[in-house]
Design a protein around this nucleic acid. Structure first.
Lengths: 353, 353
DNA sequence: GCGCATATTGTGAGCGTTCTCAAGACTTGT
DNA sequence: ACAAGTCTTGAGAACGCTCACAATATGCGC
């Protein structure tokens, strides 16, 4: 017998308050020219009836859809999702994105796109047509994908690229990779370390380069050399093992390592253990990402915390605030922080002092 | 000079194919009475123009919105999100939900709701009004929240409750908690363990009870006692420490523990280490959840893998397939599996045999 | 070949909102 | 007190699609 509750529409509110539809619409959207007295009356009606505008109808008539679409890598989330960088990305994205969206009356939707597919344009195009989002957020590795950025530019949809600092179409937001690597390196230097190794990510990620830059800049500032102290991995565990081996083989005097992902850092931990090096006593270690896994290793790792949630949140704000025809394609940097746990300590006294 | 690309509408397709709007609509929706010849012609036009129906317009006119709304706990995702169970939930939900939705032409949206807030009804009600989803998916701890289920029932929106086996309004989907606990217990028994402890979750989660049930059933089946072998935690690390301490204090002869979350299991690992108990030689350990963190502990943990993605996927299918007035509120069980790693081993020989 | 059932196509209304534009109610300056 | 504003409100069209129904075409039995 569940009586089908008819949806409360703007018309119901208008009748209840004795005004026109348009006036209600103005009140709902914070329109400028409504007498306070009337406004309050309408607000009361809205409250009483529990009116909430229909997103679909708003999209139909107005120029906005109140939808922000976030594009994520399908591969990372599907097949590979446990094997690689961990999955914190999606969570944090949602965290930052959904909350910020809802603060502005927007909604966030997630679209999973497989970069390797040659249907990228079709898939994404279909999503754009169906949803007609007011803005799109691109996450790595899509952030600098030509096919995608071009498609978005063609359609005139504002978009933000997370983890990119290339000016170009769309807003770029970096998570301060250069600064973060600099910060980590400086901290290790403060602790007395003179030989600080770096395990960077793959070169197709531009953030890998920025991190190397930050590390080198810091080394230069304190008069240290980076000679022979750089290795690369692919963010995964195995690559971390190889890189750590190489680094330690080549530099017996190494006392600190910065790893470009938590998983690679955990690999370093394992390699160190195998060689009888105690962390942090013999070897200090700082990782990037600060995913939950690093809190439970032995010892818990000091890590650069990627402000993903905040960055996405900023991206959303930019997209929402942006005038439809605004072309100020800025680069925004959100600073990362260092969370110190038990994998960093003062450098051991040199063997022969 | 970016020419604003006008959206391709159903009208464009109709003109291009030389038919009426209605015919195009029929083709798009797989309507029954269209001559194959015409259908192909229309399809060709759709293809050529790249037409994709607008979700908003479909919602406006038709009875469906093609939106499934997933309700998640805000607390877990916001403040507490690192401290408690880990965040794999959201990822896996998205994984299972988004893909399955898109296979059926649906979209999934995520709504974060704070159970502890007294605005639950308001918040959720607003989301329902704005989105008018065709179905809602409830995840723990919302799955059996009266306020929420009642609201949904009132509005006549079909919903699925994940991690619930209570028949009632809506479809219930359990992840085989009873069976999983039984499986874990039996496995430990097979390995020769006779004293198998259980660290359960908080009692307000009904799955906590089911896991206890499965554990007890297995113990009974092989003639073991559960006396004094049960502790409770809140899924978080600290609570796991306390529970492990209590369990080991009370039962010096304990050789195996099942923990109801990965974090609690990691706490057990730590406690064992402190007491000089080696895992798995002296103590076997199986956890629930199988989040990424358990692959990198020392040793990596054997864990019950929660088929969250699959369960959500099933939920989506149920919601989509369901007739608007169908009331067959079934309970569906998706079986969990045991992933064995290095934290389980044959029971040590009794001290005095 | 006629009449009726059935398959196929088209027509017009309506979903809930915002847009554009016009009308009425106040101000203000002189 | 009058013209010329500015502020406030409302009316009607429009967004892109599907619904219910009407119209036409096709098939079948006799």
């Amino acid at each position: 017998m569940a009586r089908v509750r008819k949806t409360v529409t703007i018309r119901d509110v208008a009748e209840d308050a004795g005004v026109s539809l348009q006036t209600v619409s103005r009140v709902v959207n914070g329109g400028p020219n409504v007498r306070p007295q009337l406004r309050d009356k309408v607000r009361a009606s809205i409250e009483r009836l529990g009116y909430v505008p229909s997103l679909a109808a708003q999209r139909m008539s107005g120029s906005r859809s109140y939808i922000i679409l976030a594009i994520n890598d399908r591969e990372r989330t599907l097949a590979d999702w446990r094997e690689r960088r961990g999955t914190d990305w999606v969570d944090q994205m949602l965290l930052g994105g959904i909350l910020t969206c809802s603060q502005h009356g927007y909604r966030m939707m997630v679209e999973l796109v497989d970069t390797h597919s040659d249907h990228v344009e079709r898939e994404l195009g279909a999503a754009l047509s169906a949803l007609q989002p007011d803005g799109v957020i691109l996450t790595p590795p899509h952030s600098e994908n030509r096919l995608i950025t071009q498609l978005l530019a063609e359609r005139g949809i504002p978009f933000a690229r997370i983890g990119s600092n290339v000016t170009g179409p769309g807003i770029a937001l970096t998570m301060g990779d250069e600064g973060a690597a600099h910060l980590a390196t400086m901290r290790l230097s403060e602790l007395g370390h003179r030989r600080i190794g770096m395990i960077a990510g793959p070169s197709q990620y531009s953030l890998s380069g920025w991190r190397i830059d930050g590390w080198k800049r810091a080394l230069a500032e304190v008069g240290l050399s980076s000679e022979g102290l750089l290795e690369r991995g692919d963010f995964g565990y195995e690559s971390g093992t190889r890189a750590a081996q190489a680094l330690l083989d080549r530099n017996p005097d190494l006392t600190a390592i910065i790893a470009s992902s938590d998983q690679m850092a955990l690999a370093v931990l394992e390699v160190a253990r195998d060689r009888g090096l105690r962390v942090p006593r013999d070897l200090s270690l700082i990782s990037f990402d600060n995913t939950p896994i690093v809190r439970f290793s032995q010892p818990p790792l000091s890590a650069i915390d990627q402000p993903i949630a905040e960055t996405v949140s900023r991206a959303v704000e930019q997209l929402i605030a942006r005038e439809p025809d605004g072309d100020d394609d800025a680069v925004i940097e959100v600073a990362a922080g260092l969370v110190e746990r038990a994998s960093t300590a003062p450098a051991p006294a040199p063997a022969r002092a």
